[in-house]
Design a protein around this nucleic acid. Structure first.
Length: 895
RNA sequence: GGGAGCUUAGCUCAGCUGGUUCAGAGCAUCUGCCUUACAAGCAGAGGGUCACUGGUUCGAACCCAGUAGCUCCCA
């Protein structure tokens, strides 16, 4: 391999991704190994890759690659969902550009265009995932509207309907006037908006007026002539069915049993009494509009009020409004305010902020609307789905989401599953001429069933429901349907892969999706769909704002990978992503990732420059033994981090192992002194072999995080000839070997010594090239002779002596509990040195006091666990020993 | 309005069962270095009243109560 100075990811990425594909490394088929399965949260087929996907899929890829390297049969199933509202909206827009109006098309014609659109743009996001390195089994790619997937959805619908879990009914639903469809409660986003609160006068009817004269209070809100209501929606007054007041409201006692006229259209409506009305909001008089408000609807039901729906499906006013017919609801609001003003019915208007619901998909203000819809009963389905989580069969990571989950599941309302769209699975309900319907998988089966009540019926008499099912209804089956487990519940694949292991998704869709998969898993298989749900945070910019197209604060993932390399971006994403917490993303994390890749590249370059000289003996036995221990220690730590899904910590442990332990210490310990003129630097055979072995293990440890760089280096000739299938992607992670904690601890002291010497050089402005003499007066059991070569080499020490007495006139420092002396050729600043030592002495004395305080405290001795007491005793001994050393050093300085 | 969570260094976060020489990491900052792997680097350093107030305890970043600020979910 030719040696570039820096790692350039571009070629490596394309090369190795294709290589992996060619050799089927992502492919999984059931075998005798333990399966490890992840199903991708299917991205919206209309989508393009954003930072949320990057995070989500990086995590999945790390998990799946690691599983593969642990000998599991790793299967990551990719795919997309059909996103009915979003996709239909895009197709409608596309048609509009071509001058085609959806209304002029039949359902079949429209679907043809929609599929055409899907074929053209639908695969983009999956292609983008490949750039990231996603090791999905692409042969398994699924789309929620594939024939088999749709069939599963229909089967499931029929099944739930048979069990009485699906019903049809009139309900107040969330209507999206732009998408012209109902949306579920979960798809409505609450938004704070500035509105106006209009105060409108309703005239009392003549007989009401005559009577009320007697009892009228002097309230200006309700004189003998009118009462005033406050509303944010004056355009709906034409749909009013009553005015409601609180029976306890003393201001309005005179209105009990009276009636009033709606302004402008002069329709008479009753005044009703209900404690529901808040007396201190607005005027205490509430206009009741059952067709256009959820609460008013309930009130209307209770008081048996008329329902007048004055809105069309697109949000314009219909004839029932009598005035402003054909105007959009928002235009009508402005116009009616003017009309009311002119009519003298508008008392005043004031600014008011309140929350309104907007459609998650189209952004349109949601219109509460009465409509016949299909519903899925949630109570029965929610209970077992809640139990899976509460009993720990399904683990939410982090577990703080259990509370949220429980709260939602315990307060869940029936799920509106019908959508007034064409793009999706059409509900398999068939209406008979008499208005009844049958639910069946096909029209033929429906006819069979219908014939049981009316044998005369033919296919032509049946009319299929126009609505399609909510996309979540199909994605709720995802972990089962991708393995064909709905249609063929006992097939080999579903039995092998299901339940899946880990699901990686966003907390935002805990209910939309996660809960519903648990429900369908329970319903269809009496099993959980997955064991662990890893909930990622939302990717925000460094100001904490959610990344969005409108703000333009989201970097383009593809450009980002071009700039920092896929590995760099993966590292960058993971570095700042503790589970369940939002991450404040900043490009500098990717930069750090890129720098890390470069560091590894250069460490490799160093080793590449070595050549074995068999005449040399191995002087690096301790270094080798030490790094071996450190490596094993780190691997154990990383294993633990993964068990707890602390991915960012696992990455950081790997990062430090490579950068600090391997590059900064190990390589510096063993690296041959530069031999001028030599093409390669001579090194003994044992050190060379050990180092290459370490490097290879490091590549394995790094691979899940940085697949491309590691694969690139894995195939270098440095490691000898490789078989075609000998790739790090399928290499097995090293077994965790023995860890000598003593060796690690002692090397740590040696490292401290080296750092202190360097520090002295630095602070005295001495050149690193100037070798210094060092002496140690050891109280501890550390065998410094053993570490002498390392300390001498790394600290650039001329002589390293072990002494029994303090060295006069030297700068001293403490490492561990031992005192070290560096003799300098320059005058020692006695004052500064004394001050430094004095400071240390004060600290140690304080520390010792605290420890002695504890040990002298009867309650502490009585209550603390024995090992804690023992520890305190050790602290005491150590501190006393150090204090002696410092005091001695001070005495030395004084003379 | 109801519920949940968060607040630790300039930034992003660890800190497990209250007890290690426990106040940590990475980045950023500062100082000195173009030292034959790497300036995308090396060597070293500084930086925190653990949001605030009280309580429990021999001992509190950690447990409890209250206060403030922030975030999310539901209505």
């Amino acid at each position: 391999m030719t040696i570039a100075k820096t790692y350039s990811p571009k070629e490596a990425e394309d090369k190795w991704y294709n290589y992996w594909l060619q050799h089927n490394f992502f492919r999984s088929v059931p075998d005798e190994r333990e399966p490890y399965t992840i199903v991708i949260p299917p991205p919206n087929v209309t989508g393009v890759l954003h930072m949320g996907h990057m995070l989500n899929n990086t995590i999945q890829d790390v998990l799946i690659r690691r599983a593969r390297m642990k000998g599991k049969n790793a299967c990551w199933v990719p795919g997309t969902d059909h996103a009915s509202i979003a996709t239909e909206a895009k197709v409608v827009a596309m048609l509009k550009e071509r001058g085609i109006n959806k209304k002029d098309l039949t359902r079949e014609e429209f679907l043809k265009y929609a599929w055409e659109w899907k074929e053209k743009y639908g695969g983009i996001i999956l292609e983008q995932l490949k750039k990231l390195g996603a090791s999905c089994d692409w042969e398994r790619t699924k789309f929620t509207m594939d024939d088999d997937m749709s069939e599963a959805v229909i089967d499931y619908f029929v099944r739930l309907h048979k069990k009485g879990l699906i019903y049809r009914g009139v309900r107040m639903i969330n209507w999206d006037p732009q998408g012209k469809t109902a949306v579920s409660d979960e798809e409505v986003i609450r938004k704070e908006v500035n509105q106006k609160l209009y105060y409108i006068r309703y005239a009392l009817s003549p007989e009401s007026k005559a009577e009320s004269l007697k009892s009228a209070s002097d309230s200006e809100l309700a004189t003998s002539d009118f009462i005033t209501i406050a509303t944010t929606r004056p355009e709906t007054i034409m749909a009013d069915a009553a005015i409601c007041i609180n029976p306890n409201d003393e201001r309005y006692l005179h209105l009990h049993g009276k009636s009033v006229f709606i302004p402008l259209i002069n329709r008479e409506i009753p005044v009703i009494l209900d404690e529901y009305v808040t007396m201190d909001f607005g005027t205490g008089c509430l206009k009741v509009t059952p067709a256009h408000d959820l609460n008013d609807y309930a009130l209307g039901q209770k008081h048996n009020l008329q329902i007048i729906d004055i809105l069309n499906d697109d949000g314009t006013l219909n004839e029932k409004a009598q005035i402003l017919v054909g105007e959009d609801r928002f235009a009508a609001r402005k116009k009616i305010a003017v009309l009311l003003e002119e009519a003298g019915s508008l008392a005043k208007s004031e600014d008011y902020t309140s929350q309104i619901g907007v459609s998650e998909r189209t952004g349109a203000a949601i219109e509460p609307k009465l409509s016949m819809q299909w519903f899925c009963k949630m109570k029965e389905m929610a209970q077992p789905a809640l139990d899976y989580v509460l009993e720990g069969d399904v683990k939410l990571i982090p577990d703080k989401f259990i509370n949220t989950y429980r709260h939602w599941m315990e307060n869940v309302r029936d799920w509106n599953i019908s959508r007034q769209l064409w793009w999706g699975q059409r509900i398999p309900a068939y209406y008979l001429p008499n208005g009844e319907f049958v639910v069946a998988k096909t029209i033929e089966e429906a006819l069979e069933e219908a014939k049981q009540t009316n044998p005369q019926l033919t296919l032509a008499d049946l009319r299929q429901e126009e609505d399609v099912l909510d996309t979540w209804f199909s994605s709720g089956l995802w972990p089962i349907s991708v393995f064909d487990g709905v249609r063929n519940p006992d097939n080999a694949e579903i039995n092998y892969y299901y339940p899946t292991n880990d699901l990686v998704t966003a907390p935002e869709i805990l209910f939309f999706w996660v809960a519903r998969m648990i429900m369908s898993g329970h319903e269809l298989r009496n099993q959980k769909p997955f064991t662990n749900v890893y909930l990622t945070g939302i990717v925000r910019d460094k100001l904490g704002r959610k990344m969005s197209k409108q703000l333009g604060n989201s970097p383009d993932p593809i450009e980002l990978m071009g700039k920092y390399g896929a590995d760099g971006v993966r590292v960058g994403m993971l570095m700042c992503s503790p589970a369940g917490n939002d991450l404040m993303f900043d490009e500098s994390y990717c930069e750090q990732g890129r720098n890390f890749a470069n560091k590894i590249w250069n460490a490799f370059k160093l080793i590449q420059g070595w050549a074995v000289d068999s005449s040399l003996t191995n002087n690096n036995k301790i270094a080798i033994e030490w790094f071996d221990s450190r490596f094993n220690q780190a691997m154990a730590q990383i294993e633990e981090d993964f068990k707890q899904y602390r991915l960012s910590e696992a990455l950081m442990a790997t990062y430090k192992l490579v950068w600090d332990d391997f590059c900064a210490w190990y390589l510096e310990m063993v690296k041959p002194v530069y031999q001028a003129g030599a093409e390669k630097q001579s090194i003994d055979a044992e050190t060379y072999a050990a180092t290459i072995g370490f490097f290879q293990n490091i590549l394995k440890a790094l691979h899940p995080f940085m697949p491309f760089l590691t694969e690139e280096l894995w195939h270098d000739e440095l490691f000898g000839e490789r078989e075609a299938l000998d790739c790090v992607i399928v290499a097995q992670l090293p077994q965790i070997g023995e860890i000598s904690t003593q060796l690690i601890a002692e090397i740590e002291i040696a490292q401290q010594v080296v750092a202190q010497v360097r520090n002295i050089r630095n602070s005295k402005q001495l050149s690193p090239k100037e070798a210094l003499p060092l002496a140690v007066k050891a109280n501890s059991g550390v065998d410094y002779i053993k570490y002498q070569p390392i300390i001498k080499h790394l600290g650039n020490i001329s002589d390293f002596n072990i002494v029994n007495e303090a060295v006069a006139g030297a700068v001293s420092f403490i490492a561990g509990t031992d005192e070290f002396y560096v003799t300098l050729n320059i005058e020692i600043d006695v004052v500064a040195e004394t001050e430094r030592l004095q400071k240390e002495k004060t600290y140690l004395e304080g520390f010792l006091r605290a420890v002695n305080g504890k040990l002298g405290n009867e309650k502490f001795m009585a209550n603390a666990k024995p090992e804690i007491v023992e520890n305190e005793l050790k602290k005491k001994a150590d501190a006393e020993s150090k204090l002696n050393t410092v005091e001695e050093a001070l005495r030395n300085l004084a003379c």
